[in-house]
């Protein structure tokens, strides 16, 4: 990997109470890469994402963002350093308007860029149309676009998406994939996403980590990804 390193995860451990869930996760992402994290239900993908943004405490291991150790920083500081988090289930603020949802990260963001709001509206025009509507009344696909837009307003260098296609109709999923690709192409943002849907994985990921029982058990490279066989095999372990 020659690209400038953005995210380095080494030997990451985490637990809920006394139950260990992550037992040594290792991942390395370079600038502008789009990488997926796959694995069956319950292997710890969501926990990994929550650990990366800081909502779950790491009990061992390191997380570095562009070389800077962030393992023990609170979530707000990680967001300000450039991590945009799009959680499983989207978690938009339901009783606030679309525009207010976006303003939250603009107001909170350490290095927010006033241009970013317009950029987000260009990637996701529906958000501009619905800007005064309360987010709880949006469809699932619209909420997903809002969750991504909300993370983008903070001007991140790394996006973490947890199952962005879950429960969303295929045409909207394709549209979201296109938007993610242009976000990467135009802004050089690095993207790590958890995914179960084979089409989405094949559509945009360039590399793929396979998780099982809290560790990374395989990495599928660019070459192997051309045939969906390897991915299919791991999704069905």
């Amino acid at each position: 990997m020659s690209a400038e390193p953005v995210l380095d995860v080494v030997g990451l451990h985490a637990a809920y109470g006394s139950t260990p869930v992550l037992r040594g996760i290792d991942m390395h992402l370079g600038k502008g890469e789009i990488v997926s994290l796959i694995g069956r239900n319950g292997v710890g993908k969501t926990t990994t994402m929550r650990c990366l943004i800081g909502l779950v405490r790491a009990t061992a291991g390191h997380i570095r963002l562009r070389g800077q150790a962030i393992t023990h920083l609170p979530p707000a500081d990680r967001a300000r350093l450039g991590i945009g988090y799009i959680p499983q289930g989207r978690q938009v603020f339901p009783r606030m308007t679309v525009e207010e949802n976006l303003r939250v990260s603009q107001l909170a963001g350490g290095k927010s860029d006033p241009q970013m709001m317009e950029r987000v509206f260009a990637y996701f025009p529906i958000l501009k149309e619905r800007r005064r509507q309360s987010a709880g009344t949006l469809s699932g696909g619209e909420q997903q676009q809002l969750a991504i837009g909300r993370a983008m307003v903070g001007n991140p260098l790394l996006l973490l998406l947890d199952e962005p296609s879950e429960g969303i109709q295929p045409s909207i999923v394709r549209m979201i994939c296109e938007a993610l690709k242009s976000i990467r192409d135009q802004l050089g943002v690095t993207i790590l996403f958890v995914e179960q849907n084979l089409d989405t994985i094949m559509e945009i990921s360039e590399r793929c980590y396979v998780a099982d029982k809290g560790t990374i058990v395989a990495e599928i490279g660019r070459q192997e990804l051309h045939t969906s066989e390897a991915v299919r095999r791991h999704l069905l372990i």
């Binding site: 967001a79 988090y85 909170a108």
Partner: peptide, 24 residues
């Protein structure tokens, strides 16, 4: 106000507000 928007976000979902950079 900006404080008000961040306060309402915190009220509705404190974890998510934190993850977006709000110092809850």
């Amino acid at each position: 106000t900006g404080y008000g928007i961040m306060a309402r976000a915190t009220m509705q979902n404190a974890e998510m507000a934190q993850a977006l950079g709000v110092r809850t």
